[in-house]
Write a protein that binds this DNA or RNA. Structure first.
Ligand code: MN
Ligand code: MN
Ligand code: ZN
Ligand code: ZN
Lengths: 140, 140
DNA sequence: AATATAAATGCTACACAATTGCATTAATAA
DNA sequence: TTATTAATGCAATTGTGTAGCATTTATATT
């Protein structure tokens, strides 16, 4: 409570304030996890990392709030259960996600954009998501 | 039971026999639904169409059998719950799926192939799935 | 046609992800 | 400091899918 605030904490507070979200410890800790992760994380990852400090519904509601505000985005890698990652500048455009068959982590590839495809007559494209499976750079 | 067999039923029987699956009424009816559908269908679609003639586990197991044999393929359109479609000749290659925001049906686009993407160094691609959202040709 | 065998089915229970209503508590504004 | 509003915890509930096991059925064999 009285310890000097780390820059990271300041960043998180600003992020919350800029989206008009109250600064609660659940949000601070969950957002901190998300910001510090190189890959997408699930409810279970959060639950494991934070113990049972927060109720399941709080965690899910927190993730939903972040997503509504655009702070994070959801990734469905087909393993049942949604994963999330912070949306960084380069990743605002629709980017590819990569699921490693070996370590089963799912990564944002913010610089790998989804190519345009031409749908058949009558199909109007709004947006698209591309999931790649394979071996990630840490496993190959 | 004694009515003349329709050609469609013969097709279905042959399909089952060619994959060494026993001809049961669950399989006949579920495969008939799948063959007759222009879009992917879910467990719930099957359950609605067939009433409670078949147990939930039978339906799921039937779908899993069909998928293992390659008769159908699974599509995850992010709505929670897997959908299935018969794999037709043109669709054996990885093709795009289209989820309509209006009618919320999900379609195979067997002629729209998934473009190759170049992943960052170290990421080895095995396969990929591309889901497009928008308005389908029946809704536009 | 009767029988044997292996597979499919129905039932029940369970697993897991996620959501909801509601009373309580905490964060911010005034 | 108080009032207001939003967030939280808890318990129950929903939704999707799986699993064990006794029973039934499809098919091959006699
Ligand atoms: Mn991403
Ligand atoms: Mn398809
Ligand atoms: Zn990996
Ligand atoms: Zn439509």
């Amino acid at each position: 409570m009285s310890a000097a605030m780390t820059p990271v904490n300041k960043d998180i507070e600003n992020l919350l304030r800029s989206h008009r979200l109250k600064r609660t410890s659940a949000r601070m800790e969950i957002l901190s996890l998300l910001l510090g992760s190189s890959h997408t994380i699930s409810y279970n990852d959060i639950s494991d990392a934070l113990g049972d400090n927060f109720d399941k519904s709080t965690v899910y509601r927190t993730l939903n709030s972040f997503e509504e505000k655009g702070i994070i985005h959801a990734v469905n890698d087909g393993t049942g259960g949604i994963k999330y990652a912070v949306t960084r500048e380069e990743g605002r455009e629709a980017h590819v996600h990569f699921k490693c068959d070996n370590c089963s982590q799912t990564y944002c590839l913010p610089d790998t954009k989804i190519p345009n495809v031409k749908a058949p007559r009558g199909f109007v494209i709004k947006n698209s998501s591309l999931l790649i499976n394979g071996t990630c750079k840490y496993c190959s």
